Simulated scan of single mutants.
Amino acid sequence: MPVAAARTISLTAAERHRLKKAAHGHKTAHQDRVRAQIVLHAARGRGNARIARETGVHLDTVRTWRVRFAEGGLPALADRKRPGRPGRFTPRRSPRSRRRPANCPPRPAPRCHAGRARNWRARSSPEPSPARSPPPRCGAG
């Protein structure tokens, strides 16, 4: 069976600028970065197999994003709505953003687990460190 030719992609200057910014941005999400790289490689005329090798993704992934961009442009690179139950938490009220009760003591500062700092502290104090008591339980009643 003959293989269908990959769709040709032509970019405007504005699209190329936005895709380059997404492909090389440090704060760009990984999936958005890969999608932008796929489209930029496709616009240079590279084949799907070569794009898959260079970006480290599956060939079907390259085909998917190439076709979606050819049919819908930049908006087509965004995630589609997924089926299923909606999330329980909104981005503003995630489970990590819950406030601690007022009667709880503040959390202890994180300890440094770097080997040098721990070894330096152990060498500088000849006496053994006092036993640590567990932090008070919060909300137990």
Score class of each variant (00 low, 15 high):
residue 15 E to F: 05
residue 52 A to H: 04
residue 5 A to P: 11
residue 130 P to R: 10
residue 132 R to I: 11
residue 68 R to A: 13
residue 120 W to S: 12
residue 55 T to E: 07
residue 52 A to F: 04
residue 141 G to A: 13
residue 45 G to I: 15
residue 133 S to N: 14
residue 96 R to E: 03
residue 22 A to P: 00
residue 43 A to F: 04
residue 73 G to E: 14
residue 35 R to E: 09
residue 22 A to L: 08
residue 48 N to R: 06
residue 45 G to Q: 10
residue 73 G to W: 13
residue 76 A to R: 03
residue 44 R to Q: 15
residue 42 A to G: 11
residue 77 L to C: 06
residue 97 S to D: 10
residue 35 R to L: 09
residue 55 T to S: 02
residue 50 R to D: 15
residue 141 G to T: 09
residue 41 H to Y: 08
residue 7 R to S: 14
residue 13 A to W: 02
residue 19 L to T: 02
residue 126 P to L: 10
residue 91 P to M: 02
residue 20 K to G: 08
residue 29 A to S: 10
residue 131 A to T: 12
residue 16 R to D: 09
residue 141 G to N: 05
residue 63 R to H: 08
residue 105 P to Y: 00
residue 41 H to W: 06
residue 82 R to N: 03
residue 2 P to H: 06
residue 38 I to P: 01
residue 3 V to F: 02
residue 66 R to H: 06
residue 117 A to M: 13
residue 127 E to D: 11
residue 101 P to V: 01
residue 125 S to I: 14
residue 48 N to C: 02
residue 134 P to Q: 12
residue 66 R to P: 05
residue 16 R to V: 01
residue 45 G to N: 08
residue 135 P to Q: 08
residue 99 R to G: 06
residue 68 R to I: 12
residue 57 V to F: 06
residue 136 P to S: 08
residue 80 R to D: 08
residue 35 R to G: 04
residue 90 T to M: 03
residue 48 N to K: 05
residue 109 A to K: 02
residue 65 W to E: 00
residue 86 P to T: 04
residue 123 R to V: 09
residue 93 R to G: 03
residue 74 L to T: 09
residue 133 S to C: 11
residue 113 H to W: 11
residue 105 P to R: 08
residue 47 G to L: 07
residue 122 A to L: 15
residue 49 A to T: 10
residue 16 R to A: 12
residue 74 L to P: 06
residue 127 E to Q: 12
residue 108 P to E: 09
residue 27 K to Q: 13
residue 16 R to H: 13
residue 40 L to S: 02
residue 65 W to T: 01
residue 54 E to M: 06
residue 12 T to P: 06
residue 82 R to P: 00
residue 124 S to F: 04
residue 107 R to G: 07
residue 97 S to G: 10
residue 42 A to Q: 05
residue 7 R to D: 13
residue 140 A to S: 13
residue 38 I to G: 00
residue 113 H to F: 12
residue 51 I to H: 01
residue 78 A to M: 10
residue 31 Q to M: 11
residue 72 G to S: 11
residue 113 H to A: 14
residue 66 R to G: 07
residue 86 P to G: 03
residue 16 R to W: 09
residue 75 P to R: 04
residue 78 A to N: 14
residue 7 R to W: 08
residue 44 R to T: 07
residue 87 G to C: 03
residue 119 N to T: 07
